[in-house]
Design a binder for these strands. Structure first.
Lengths: 254, 254
DNA sequence: CGCTGGCTTGATTCTATTCAATTTTCGTGG
DNA sequence: CCACGAAAATTGAATAGAATCAAGCCAGCG
């Protein structure tokens, strides 16, 4: 881990859907929540750190002094409790380093080369307590991550390999969509094993899944890490495939 | 929904593990985070609401004006997107009513009779912006819910019915543990179908799962909703059963 | 007392896991 | 730059386990 006490392009940034006031549920837009002033303010207490591909960022249970804010690159967060399980893939403008009583609640590894701001928790706390607006932004981000985790859970609850993979691709695409343009290709920085651990299936099943999606002309694979969605209609249909035992309507008294 | 503008026993309360300063990872204690003053303060902007068993509390996509803080009873949060899927069971001192751009991000139904504080979001925002400490507590609670969601995901990623059920029982037991005493019996307020939707298996599979746990003398079932854990050792072993394809160790450069 | 809804159980089918063998990719050193 | 070796990914065949469909059971309630 390289550590250089430099303030750099703009300062920390947080990307999320604002839970509070705004608009209509279909337009769900990701915003950069911090103002330039806030970013500058946070920059004063943060330092830039770099990690090589595959490098450990922190480990579960370690004393936590730092929260990270990704500038570039991709990080995976995982728990190695029983079966290895990837909790989330984290992209630029995400916060990494969830705490639990002053210790990290999961582990994190750089999937690609990563640049990040390191925010010392005590200084961060101090900064937050000075600025309610800033604190709101953190709350917004946490709500966002919570929803994200719930979508992940929804994915894991699916029973068909293709459904899971379809949802996975849509998730990744969504994460990579900045602003308007709906990226031509989904970029998959992680390897197949990581995907398997994220979607909760075996590695061969992931492999077969991709093969089948290609065979059915739903996606095209340029290269292990670049997937083009050819037939979005069918993909969405797969992703929301409803086939679960008792589809008897649920009652709602009153 | 009965609505009575009364301030009542103590005011809103939040239960969570404090992410920040404290202690050691094994002791992980759930605290009541709000001081009496804070609770009183929140009580002034909140009203008490009651829901009957089975009553809808809010629905996904609705304009959200209110966040709920459970006083007594149990709530289930779910998405009905594709396959029905229960996101979480919520207990007293939890916050319900996750927002996304001013709309509810999921639906909620009372599993038992429920009493809750209704906190109007604008007033809540105002109150929060006046009090940084209070805001910290909300952040702490969100971190807690996030971890909770990740545990749920870990459960869903398991492939064996018994493993899922074992984890489920431990989760519920943990939620019901107040303070020191490790409750004699786990109380399951939800029906088998709810459990099925939470753990991501079919209803018959849940039924068989419980039957097998009983047959193997790991639990005892007094009544549909009261389960006693007899052989905690084996249960934990099941819950952390490691059987997943390529258990080759993962490398970590540097 | 019989009905209803939640729950259990049985038989079959389906799909992903597993184990194993093979191919491809990629990084490294000659 | 190419050749090699190791890691990643793919593929095949057999198996295990849960979903599904369907029938029966039990408890609570009018």
């Amino acid at each position: 881990m390289t550590n250089a006490r430099t303030n750099s392009p703009g300062g920390p940034a947080i990307r999320a859907v604002d839970p509070w006031l705004p608009g209509n549920p279909s337009t769900r837009r990701l915003h950069q929540l911090l103002s330039n002033e806030e970013r500058a303010q946070l920059a004063t207490i943060s330092s830039i750190v770099r990690f090589k591909k595959g490098e450990q960022i922190y480990s579960q249970g370690e004393r936590a002094h730092t929260i990270f804010n990704i500038v570039s690159g991709v990080v995976k967060a995982y728990t190695s409790n029983a079966t290895d399980h990837i909790t989330a893939f984290l992209y630029p403008q995400d916060l990494v380093g969830l705490l639990e009583e002053g210790h990290y609640a999961n582990s994190a590894v750089a999937v690609t080369a990563v640049t990040a701001y390191a925010l010392p928790t005590p200084a961060l706390r101090r900064e937050l307590s000075k600025d309610a607006e800033l604190e709101f932004h953190v709350i917004a981000k946490l709500c966002h991550e919570l929803r994200q985790a719930q979508r992940h859970a929804l994915l894991l609850a699916q029973r068909h390999a293709l459904t899971k993979l379809a949802m996975f691709l849509e998730l990744q695409e969504h994460l990579q969509t900045t602003g308007e343009n709906p990226v031509a290709e989904v970029y998959l920085p992680m390897d197949r094993k990581d995907i398997a651990e994220f979607v909760g299936m075996s590695l061969p099943a992931v492999s077969r899944g991709f093969r089948d999606l290609v065979a059915r002309r739903i996606i095209r694979i340029r290269d292990r890490r670049h997937v083009k969605i050819v037939d979005r209609g069918t993909l969405e249909q797969l992703a929301s495939r409803t086939s679960r035992y008792p589809l008897q309507q649920r009652r709602t008294k009153q």
